[in-house]
Structures are given as C-alpha cells and as structure tokens.
Nucleic acid binder design. Structure first.
Lengths: 338, 338
DNA sequence: AGGTATAATGTAAGCGCTTACATATAAACT
DNA sequence: AGTTTATATGTAAGCGCTTACATTATACCT
C-alpha cells in the first residue's frame, strides 16, 4: 500500500495524502477531508515508506549510537546504563535508535557520510578516540552529534558528562573529613580522560589542605580489578603506611579489598577503601562500598534529550554544548572514621 | 557525493558505479575498470545512499529488535544479555541493528509494514504477547522474524530459546540427588510460558519418583524478589516442613533467602534454596546460589545468526524454525546434602 | 568475410515519497 | 460585476539509486 493506492481509494491526489500523513502539513488540508482520510489511512494500515521519505527529505527519524566494534561490548553495566538512558529518552519522540558498531581500523569514519550512508539524523558518540581521529570531525560530519563523556583535549564536540573532577575532589574531601591524611590512589588507564580528571580533582583538594601525594602512592590499575589487586602488595610496603586507598572505579576497589583480605587485612578496620561509579555490586558487597555515584543513565538521557532538541530546532551549524551532571559521594561502610 | 558526481569524475556511467559498489554485481565490470573505480570511490569517500537503495531494492541492511515500549527497559541483565548477543552476532555481517520500542496499546503492529515503514529487513522479537496479538502474525508480516524465548501455545513463529522444561527437570533431579524429598516452588507470573515450562519439567521429574507437590507448596512469586519473599512466611507454616525451595528465577531466590534469614533460618543449613537463570549476583551472594544456568547470550546470538541466514538465503515464505539451547545446573552452596 | 555468441558499458525508467508551482474555488474586497 | 486574496487541492519534477534492455566492441565460429 503506497500513496498512489491510498490516494485512489480516497479519491484525492497523492499530495493530499502526503499532507495528511505529516503532522507539519496537516493544517494545509481541510478538516473534513482530514477526517475522511484518517479513517481510510487507518483502515488500510498505510504507513509511509521511510526509504522514500529519507530520499526526498534526508530525514530518517533515527539516531545512531556510535560504539566501537567489538565482541561482548554490551555485556557490562556501563553500556547497559547508557543504552537504557538513550532508549528511555527516545521513548516519547519520533526517533528510532540504531547501533553503529564501527571498526576502529576504518578511520574513514572521519569523513563518512553518516546521514546518507547509515540513515541517521543525529548521533550519540560513546568512544571518541577509538572511532575518530580528526579533532574537528563533528564540525565536518554535517550531522548533529553529542558525545557521552569528556572529550579529550582539543576535540571540538558537544558533550554531556558527569563531573569527574568534582568527583575526585569530593572523594578527597570525604576521606579527609573522616580523618584520613595519608592516601594512595589506584588510577585508570594512562590515557583515560576520566582518570585524569578524577586525579585532578583529588589532587586539587589535597593541595588545598597542603597534603602531598607522593608518586609511590599512585598506582595504575587500568580500571581493571586484577591489575588493581596486584597494586596492593606494593602499597603495603610504603612507609609510613597510608590509611585510605581511593580507587578510580568500583571494580578496582573490589579487587583491592579482596587482595587485602587475602593478606589478612580488613576493610575498613585496617584500611579504608573508596571507589568510583557506584555500580550495582557496591551496595551488595562486603563491606558495602563507599563510592562516588556517577549518574550514567542520566548522562545518556540528557545527551539524547539534547540531541533531539538540536534536531528539532533544525540547527544546521555545529554548536558546542557542554554539560556536566553532578556527582555525589555515597557513604557506605568501606571508609572508617579515625 | 552521489552516483552522478562519482560517475562524472570517473568518466563512466552511473550504472557502472553502481555495479562496482555492490559485491553481487562487481563481476559484471572489467577488472581494470574496477581497480580504477575503487580508487576514485575511496578518494571521494563515496558511500551509496541507503535510502535510495532501500527505495529501489527494499533492502536496508538493518534488522530490528522488537521490545515493548517502556521506561527502564534495558536496565536489567536479561536485556543486557540479549542485546549483547544480538550485537555480537551482527558484528561480522553487513547488518545494522535498530531498536523498535513498540507501544503495546497499538495493536496495529499486527498488520504493520515493518519493512517499508521501519526500514528493517528482518526482526528479532523479544516479547510476543505484549506487542502482537494475531497468532499467525509472523506468516503475514512478510518479513523474516525470529523470536527469542518460547512462544505461547498456538503462535506460529520461528524461535530460539533455552530448554526451560529440561531446566525444571534438572533442578528437581539435583535436589533429589542431594537427598531432598519435600519441596516447595516459587513460580513466575501465571501467564509466563517460561514459568509453565519450568514447572512442567520439575513436576515431570517428581512424578517419575512418585513424589507429589501439594498445591499449598506452590507459591506465585511473579518473578519478583519481594513477592517471593512474602511467600516464605506461608512456607514456614506448612507441615511437614519442606527441606528445599526451588525458585523459578534467581531474584526470587535472593528474596527467599533474605526473608528466611530475617526469620532466623540459615541457608543451606536449615533450608536449601535453588534458583534459575544464573544471574551475575548468583556467584557473589551469600551463600553462593545453586541455580540453573540459562544461556541468554547464546540464545540471542543464535537467534540472530539464524535470522541472518534466513535473510541471506532470500527465503520468502515463512518457515518455522525451532531451536532449544541446553541448560545446566550450576552447583554452588545454597543446597545442602541431607 | 559474415554471422553469432560474449563481455563491457550505457540509457532510461521507476521505486514512493515531498514540495514548488499551478489551478480551481470561494470569500472579500472596491 | 470585476478584481484581489485566501484556501484547498492537483500536477509534475526530482531525491539517488538499481536494473531491464539497448548498444557497442571483441572474440570465435564456419
């Protein structure tokens, strides 16, 4: 069933059908006609062909979510929350949602015509550096894009993220407030912007209290539980021993706590541990983890909301939009008062 | 950059470009020409417009995943695994992947032209009853569909699922093997096909050992932790008291264990509890949960693989394909030997 | 050489829409 | 009544492809 057939059934021209079917042009057709057409359209279950629509208007009512191309990518809480946020944000809009799993190797993505070739009106981008390389790619792509997370230095992008730096600052403040003065940190990957920001915030608070964080108290945990665990050994050799370890994500905190337990130390009685993220294990594990809550779901939701607004406004040019959602310390039992 | 422009740059006709760009027709153009064209195509980053392609061929290189329209839908492990399986299965194919969140209310979906209106070549369907009502909808939809999970009675559908019934049977066998003779079960929703199958398998084993499962030992937990927890009270009043509770999912098992603990009973010393699903908490909780592992990720992966094959074969007609993946008992510590 | 099969490329129609423009009708002026 | 303006609808072109069919060039026959 296409416009021609429906138009014939209704005894009007295809133009009138088209007008009746599109919210923006409905006002151009007479109310009585509209009523009659609606009935017929419903009766025959007519729905316009999206391909034809895309061809004439270059609108697809679809947004793309760009993720790196890799096995098992969604099998984690991070993506579960992002996906959930994007999906929920789109619920009451006209937009569908397409996953674009892009091979890092194909750096052609930087000059790829996403709109025409993928049929998307806009994009949510989750991993800038893995997929793109041109720092002003978003200005050139000719399609509205919003990044989730902080772009790296020099990248011109609209983004929504959580306030990672503030999170680091708050973690330090919390530990300090509980009487801790000698810290160690377990960081994420060396190139992770998140990791850098968390560190920056943490250090910033310490400096304001004239506390130093010696190099030998900084361990790189690569955001991985096992790698973080292996740092515990070195930590235990430092003198004077620190009283609190701040891990840049919860996974690493679990690893550290486990390793400490194996070494006969209890958390928080012997050493306090703080995490970052507030993942689903945090409340359930032993001891329940004091951590910094990162509102990933809300970040994704907000990024998508913003993208949809951008799309609705029909804004052509690139406009950098930057938004940081607040984070907060969730106090549980892994940090002891001293 | 479209065919005309590229054709002009290359000094050939648009037909030749089209042939060069499509794997199936590449053999129709001379090797030397091909080489030259490939270079030019790459140079100008030409990628065919998907909408135009869709309009002429009705192929979109996209499959849809049908899920009910609702907030927070993906915020759970079940969907995380399904999504992950579908996405991974599509990695090395030409297909993209679109989420179709369909409002249950709009029963028009039964006669909706998904191909034209949504631009998908095939669909993975996750919740039959919530979205469709016509039991032979998949024969009529005119687009290949594969369901994930067991369709309800009478629904003509291709599907891939886990062997729920066998799972119920295995659970009974395991408990029996550990010396248990008096059971209670906490079921899922009354209309859940999964719940029914698990029950069927469980009962089937019991019958083979001439063990009865009295009505007052069957509690409906609606697959919800809290509802299941509230059944514990009633359970404790039954005489002679059962020695093992089989919960039809892990969430309910956690609820039951928690409630028992509140009543001063320990698991497994006082009562054994078995779950179903093997979700991510199962290994980590206290006590680690003995449960039936349901390979959701593999189910999704297999369903998608099958859909892609169907698409590749170009099979027009509806062909019912039924596949059950094996489940297994994961032995941990919530079931005690007696 | 003349005829025929084969290969490479080109021409043009058409997929189902949207929309600028043309037309027709009615209402509101002078 | 004649002219203008507003409203409703129709006509036809064009979006960027694919592909049936036409054309041309080349090779292979007898």
């Amino acid at each position: 069933m296409n416009v021609y057939e429906i138009a014939k059934k209704a005894g009007v021209s295809i133009a009138t059908i088209s007008r009746a079917v599109n919210p923006e042009t409905r006002s151009k057709v007479a109310p009585e006609t509209l009523e009659r057409l609606d009935k017929i359209i419903r009766q025959y279950h007519y729905a316009p062909n999206q391909a034809a629509k895309g061809l004439t208007q270059s609108v697809f009512n679809t947004i793309g979510m760009v993720v790196p191309h890799g096995e098992g990518f969604f099998m984690n809480e991070y993506y579960m929350k992002l996906l959930s946020g994007v999906a929920d944000s789109l619920l009451e809009t006209k937009y569908r949602f397409k996953l674009l799993m892009l091979k890092c190797a194909d750096r052609k993505w930087d000059r790829y015509n996403f709109r025409a070739a993928e049929g998307v009106d806009g994009m949510i981008v989750t991993h800038w550096r893995v997929v793109f390389s041109d720092k002003s790619v978003f200005e050139k792509l000719g399609i509205p894009c919003v990044m989730i997370g902080d772009p790296e230095r020099g990248v011109r992008a609209s983004f929504v993220s959580a306030d990672q730096e503030k999170g680091g600052w708050l973690a330090a403040q919390h530990l300090y407030g509980k009487g801790h003065r000698r810290f160690a940190v377990v960081t994420g990957g060396a190139f992770s912007v998140d990791s850098q920001l968390r560190m920056k915030g943490f250090q910033s608070f310490l400096r304001s209290r004239h506390i130093a964080l010696p190099k030998d108290r900084i361990f790189c945990g690569e955001f991985q539980e096992d790698v973080a665990a292996s740092a515990v050994e070195k930590f235990l050799k430092t003198k004077p021993k620190g009283t609190a370890i701040f891990c840049f994500n919860d996974d690493m905190a679990y690893g550290v706590i486990r390793k400490m337990r194996e070494a006969g130390l209890r958390c928080p009685q012997d050493i306090s541990v703080m995490g970052f993220d507030d993942d689903s294990r945090a409340a359930a594990c032993e001891p329940p983890l004091t951590t910094v809550r990162v509102p990933l779901y809300d970040v994704a939701k907000q990024a998508t909301r913003h993208l949809v607004e951008k799309l609705a406004s029909g804004a052509k040019g690139f406009a950098g939009h930057e938004e940081l959602l607040p984070v907060e310390v969730v106090v549980r039992k892994s940090v002891r008062e001293r």
